[in-house]
Amino acid sequence: MTEFRFAVNVLPRAGILDPQGRAVEAALPHLQIRAIRDVRVGRRVELTAVADSTAEARALVERLAGELLSNPLIESFTVEELGATSSLASAAGADGPGPAGAPGAGAAPGAGAAPGTAGR
């Protein structure tokens, strides 16, 4: 079993009223900022999933994201893989960057981001 670190980014769906985004925009003139627009405020959840493979871990995270972390009626989400943090099996022996099996662990952060399955 390996620990995989993920981030789930939740945003209001396009076209959904986002009063927090409007409130941020309303503050921009006070900072003399004119070149920023279309602010949308969402939520980022980081978590560790324990699984045998990246695919298994991702499936678990996507389920959580769709059922609890976001409301598909009003929000969409993306799952971002932050990489394998440790291998629990080898943790008993040597610590360190596990046999890093973790396929995909080497991918640049964000490379694993994929559109959520909120449309299910």
Binding site: I16, L17, P19, Q20, A23, N71, L73, I74
Partner: peptide
Amino acid sequence: AEARLLPGALLRNRSL
């Protein structure tokens, strides 16, 4: 609404 026993969702008040 969150339990899908009723349709729709309750968003933050427009006034915040």
